[in-house]
Design a protein around this nucleic acid. Structure first.
Lengths: 202, 202, 202, 202
DNA sequence: GATGAATGAGCGTTCATTCAT
DNA sequence: CATGAATGAACGCTCATTCAT
């Protein structure tokens, strides 16, 4: 039985893994130190690369951060889609979604926080597509509309507003919970009950 | 009877108000440009003072910003306390509080947003006392506890968590509303109904 | 008898012209962007080659530029030698030479300008063989000597000085003419009369 | 009789001579090393100042260079105006002007050369007002027109073209003369005769 | 108290060149 | 011959803070 040498078996050249290494280092440092305190040079050094290499893969620091954000978003998105109860009762949907988010958050500590860094920090001018939180708010709005259409939720709300409210509530409770030593069970329980009562049809 | 011209009386050069002038300039610039893009020098110049004078009144830029934040907090606090229905129905309390907040926000555009600048922006290391949002969350928690004790609100919640959730919901809806062109009436109406349903006793 | 298709014969990959391709690309870019703004990488890419290939043909960027300059010089030289009246009257010689120079300049726009890039731009330390302008001045000096020996020109001048003066006059009038919209006819006419009067024997 | 203490007698503060020191250092370094090889930091260091101080006086390196050029231009201009024969014969005007230029050039070695650094070196984009050489060409054009109007010079020339030709001739002979060890007397003599013959009326 | 000239650590970014493949 | 990922010295510039006046 042969063991394939993962390090050297690539047919062509040395495996150009430098982008992967930069991505990992960027995530690590953006999470640990934040955007401002992380220099492109630090990211490259952490990845064991010269700092010119950073600019082979990203046009500038901002682009690197935005790529990190997008990766985190996609990861969380995949995780949540895979783990939430798509069409159960309102309570099941909410509880399973919250649990999925907290699962991701627990196994990737600090990542969501770092990814939600305010856009104003990233670039004084220019425009970030849509802030992460707002995008997620739109997804919650979709969920609200969906549930209202099915009769599982009150249909007299403006779904956009309520979607943003939900995501804001999650964000702030999460933020505060990481400061205080708050247990996840209580968080999910309280928020689920809160949201279910607020949303359920009369 | 003579009225002393406070603006122009030559003998006492109109100076002792330099802290006030710095405060006003700092608020103006932090709101217009944000923390990073505002230099102590700009604040002093805007106030018609020399750069060094800034450091006579604040040990550093961070302290100046924190003072601005505290002033905004106190102002909003006073405004809300003066204008909300202290002990009416849950709905009255919530609606009047929201309206008071939006009143302040409308008459001091940009101030709350600037004051909520993420702490990570203000200083890479050090620690900001308690983030503004978290403090406001604690006040909402107090309201929740108070209402629950009176039987006006469901008493099975962890008030701290719900307080943070409420303030998070307000923050994010406000933020998003200023981007989209969302009308205040709909915001207050939706949020009030949402919170009242979530909080009211079974 | 078979003629090998140099353009497309697959077996021998159409490579040995890489130096030619680099030369053409280098000229194009040095003319369009100037020395500083042209990177070896750009030249190679423009030629459809890898970056490293550049260094197979030139030791460094400077050498590539110097080769471009030399090619331009040789081209102009050949063109002028082929087109000027070698031994006519002073006026004929001068007028035909000026016309030949302008012909070349018109059909290779920007090339002479780029080739005359100041030596200080090319390398802070090292020494360029002899600046192009000075070499051309020496050729004009030769012409002056020649004409003086034949009695067609005043022989009391230091030919070296006058040669440099002539080439300087041509350069600066050409430079200024491309900025202002000055017509070539007037340029040749004025310069020819100017030089003929200055040079003709008493 | 009192001797005023030039170092300390200023009524207000320490004499803010830092701009003068920067100017002197900038001139020295631009002359010795050229534009590209001179860093703002070097200029400041040479002046005994921190490198931030450079940016107190100039918005950027380019502005510093342009100020150097303008100073050199004004100095030469003043020197030439003070020393040339304004209205003598054509020969007197030309000879005295050339001598004045060479006087300046001898007593400020390298300055004119440095000041004439090609505009393309200073900024890839942007536009320098008018290149120094072209401006001087315009002044010679004025001289030519003036002399032609007085009957001291041939009036069938386009003065603009001839003015540029003259300044080009001076520039290139000067440039080449500093390379070769050419004596100033021969330069002035040859150029004066050359220009006088070219310009004088038939 | 008030001033503003002076400071220099620190930033993000570029590009000529090398060398393992 | 050819490649292009990798390098790191070097650059122009900013800005919070100090201190002699």
């Amino acid at each position: 039985m042969t063991v394939i040498d993962l390090e050297k078996s690539e047919p062509r050249r040395r495996k150009p893994d430098s982008l992967e290494r930069l991505k990992a280092s960027a995530r690590k440092l953006f999470v640990e130190r934040g955007y401002d305190a992380t220099r492109p040079q630090d990211i490259a050094r952490e990845a064991g690369l010269g700092h010119g290499t950073f600019y082979l893969h990203y046009p500038d620091k901002r682009a690197c951060f935005l790529a990190f954000v997008e990766d985190a978003r996609a990861e969380l998105d995949a995780h949540v889609r895979a783990n939430r109860a798509q069409d159960g009762s309102l309570e099941q949907v909410i509880a399973s979604t919250l649990n999925a988010i907290y699962d991701y958050s627990d196994s990737h500590p600090g990542v969501l926080n770092a990814a939600m860094t305010d856009e104003s920090v990233i670039d004084a001018e220019g425009v970030q597509a849509t802030p992460l939180l707002t995008r997620w708010g739109q997804e919650w709005a979709e969920m609200v509309r969906h549930a209202a259409a099915d009769g599982r939720a009150c249909n007299s709300y403006d779904a956009e507003i309520i979607g943003q409210a939900i995501v804001g509530a999650l964000h702030q409770t999460g933020r505060e919970a990481s400061g205080a030593a708050r247990c996840r069970g209580a968080l999910v329980d309280n928020l689920t009950r809160f949201l279910v009562r607020a949303l359920k049809p009369d």
